[in-house]
């Protein structure tokens, strides 16, 4: 496993301050080409020497895809843009270039892939947006769902009993337990689906608010409320999802 000296070069370039982006193009790490020092204003490739430019460290995933911070995303647009940007940045197209260009292409590609992966999945997309809008997730930590915790503990006890009984072969106790767990599973899966529906409602609320805010200025309080509500749904969903997974794993 060699050291990636190329990555160090890139880190170095990332030290420079980000420039302001035009609406059409991505912000690059510097306002001057790292190679020929000519002015670059958001082009991926330098207009003078055609060398690839490193993406700005301040670039967020939404901006990377030139998307506003909305939660409903046109998946076809996302894929199309991902493919286009991949054709610009992928290391395959820099294999005969010098080490610095290779390193920049590698860094830009890794960032692009992370951005696509995150935005493609609605849950990851929402979690990312919350982090972006509110700083650390903990800052808007939601109320602990005490009833859900009780449910987790209770289910785990039942699962424990089931795991102890199962190796002893079929019995009426085991069968009853299996039925109970089966019912629990259906109930939890239904709940998970409901959570996803309410999350979708929050997506719509957020998007509408963002559009209103763009016209009327700040709506910080309202935004925080939606973010907090979304965070709560996401957290609760995690507990429910874990329970479903444990159930599936134990019961096969």
């Amino acid at each position: 496993m060699p050291e990636a000296s190329e990555a160090e070069i890139m880190e170095h370039q990332h030290q420079a301050q980000a420039t302001t982006a035009t609406s059409r193009e991505l912000p690059m790490a510097r306002s001057m080409c790292w190679h020929c020092q000519s002015e670059v204003t958001g082009e991926y490739l330098c207009g003078q020497c055609v060398k690839v430019q490193p993406l700005s460290r301040d670039l967020d995933y939404f901006a990377c895809f030139q998307l506003p911070r909305l939660l409903n995303i046109d998946e076809q647009y996302l894929e199309k843009t991902f493919y286009e940007l991949s054709r610009t940045f992928h290391p395959d197209f820099y294999s005969t270039k010098d080490e610095s260009e290779k390193a920049i292409s590698l860094g830009n590609s890794a960032f692009l892939n992370a951005a696509y992966r995150t935005l493609k999945d609605p849950i990851q997309r929402a979690e990312y947006l919350i982090r972006l809008e509110a700083g650390a997730v903990k800052d808007i930590r939601s109320n602990p769902p005490a009833d859900l915790f009780e449910e987790v503990l209770e289910l785990q006890e039942t699962l424990e009993t089931f795991r102890q009984l199962a190796p002893k072969g079929p019995s009426s106790d085991l069968e009853a337990l299996r039925k109970k767990l089966q019912a629990e599973r259906e109930h939890l899966e239904k709940r998970q689906a409901e959570m996803e529906t309410s999350l979708q409602h929050k997506f719509n609320e957020w998007d509408q608010l963002q559009e209103r805010a763009a016209l009327s200025g700040q709506a910080r309080e309202e935004k925080n409320t939606i973010l907090r509500e979304m965070q709560e749904i996401l957290s609760n969903r995690t507990y429910v999802r874990n329970m479903v997974n444990d159930l599936l794993e134990t019961m096969g």
Partner: peptide
């Protein structure tokens, strides 16, 4: 520490 998997699927480790 940055763990980077390149297009070959090979890991590179750097630290800052």
């Amino acid at each position: 520490v940055n763990f980077l998997i390149d297009a070959n699927g090979i890991l590179h480790v750097t630290a800052r």
